[in-house]
Structures are given as C-alpha cells and as structure tokens.
Computed example of a mutant assay.
Amino acid sequence: MSSFNSAETGLMAKYNANDTTLMVDGELMYGFAADTMISVAYDNDNVTVSQDPQGTAVASINNKTGATLTVNLNETSPSNAKLTELANTRAEFPLDLRTSTVHQTAAHCYISKMPDNTAAQNAGDRAWQIHALNLDTESLVGR
C-alpha cells in the first residue's frame, strides 16, 4: 500500500497543537486539558432527505449554522475565571478559533451551563459548553 504522502500527492498537511488559539470575548484561552483541547460539533445536518415508500425523495437544504464547542480546561487554568464570568452574567460574546487546519468564528455565543466540577487526587478538567449561534468555518489546508 502506498503512502498518501507520495510523489503524486505531496505532503497532505502538518498539524501542530501550538498553532491552536481560541479567543473568547477578546481574551486568549490557555491551560487546556491534557488530551483534547477543543471540540466542535455542528448542531444540524446541511441537508435533510425524506423519501416516501415508493422511493420519491426530497432534499431539504438546512441553513442552520449553530454549533456547540466544548473547551476542555484544566481546573487550574486562569481562563476558567473569564468563562465563569460569562456564564454567571449570561453574556453574549464572540469567539475565534484557529488551528493548523481550520479557522472558525462566531459573533454571537453563549455558555450553556457551568461545567461539572470534581475534587480528586489530581487536578481535574472542566468541560465548558459554548453555543455558537452562527459558526463560520474556513479550511486552512493547502494555504
């Protein structure tokens, strides 16, 4: 089996976790959890398809661009203070996420609820759920 980084295809891309920046309400977030720093999941499919019993299909375009971001911070991260403030005041805020491969922005975001908190032998993680009302996504691969 040939490598996808062959002479025909070239190098696919490089990823570096240090390229990841998340700005929330103008502040840089840092002090992430050990493994997954941030995950992004769009709330809806782009297209919904329905078919009748005879196979006639209709594709309905969905224009909803809301998404849920999970920001995993170590509980000792100073960034928890900013997110706690936003959650307690139910404030609306912008965010800007950039990695080696993608740039995502949203002007209207909210924290859905305070994250769970635990006390244990070691410092734990706090998983912040942020709802982005209209998340724009741009691929940075090949640029």
Rank of each mutant, 00 (worst) to 15 (best):
S6D: 11
V24R: 04
Y30F: 12
T101H: 10
G124H: 02
D125S: 15
V49W: 00
H103S: 07
G31N: 05
P94H: 12
A81Q: 13
H103T: 07
T36D: 08
R98D: 01
G66K: 10
T56D: 04
E138R: 14
L28M: 13
H103G: 01
G26A: 08
N63E: 11
N16I: 10
T65P: 00
M37Q: 15
T36R: 14
S139K: 07
I61T: 12
Q121R: 08
G26Q: 07
S6P: 02
T21G: 02
Y110K: 15
G124S: 09
T105Y: 06
N117Q: 14
I130D: 01
N117C: 04
T70C: 03
N18H: 13
L86H: 00
D45T: 13
P78T: 08
A120H: 06
G10I: 06
P78C: 03
T118Q: 11
F32K: 10
G124Y: 01
S60G: 04
F93W: 09
N80D: 03
A57D: 06
D136F: 09
Q51L: 10
N63P: 00
T118I: 14
N134S: 15
M114P: 04
E8Y: 06
I38M: 09
F32H: 09
A34R: 13
V49C: 03
S50R: 12
L97D: 05
F32I: 13
T76M: 08
T89M: 05
T70L: 09
A123Y: 05
A17G: 04
G66R: 08
L69K: 09
A120P: 01
D136P: 00
G10C: 03
A123S: 05
D43A: 15
T137K: 12
G66L: 08
A87F: 06
N72A: 14
D25N: 13
N74M: 05
S3I: 09
D35H: 13
I111Y: 02
L69N: 04
S77Y: 00
T68N: 09
K82Q: 09
A132P: 00
L11I: 12
G31H: 01
D35Q: 15
K82F: 00
G142C: 05
R90D: 02
A81W: 02
L22E: 02
A106E: 00
M1S: 11
T101E: 12
T48V: 15
V49T: 14
T101M: 15
V141S: 08
G31F: 04
F4G: 10
T105R: 12
L73E: 01
S79R: 04
A107G: 02
H108K: 15
A7M: 07
Y42C: 05
A34F: 07
D45Q: 14
P53V: 14
W128V: 03
H131E: 12
N46D: 11
A41K: 15
A17P: 08
M29Y: 00
L83P: 00
E8V: 12
I130F: 06
G10H: 03
N5D: 13
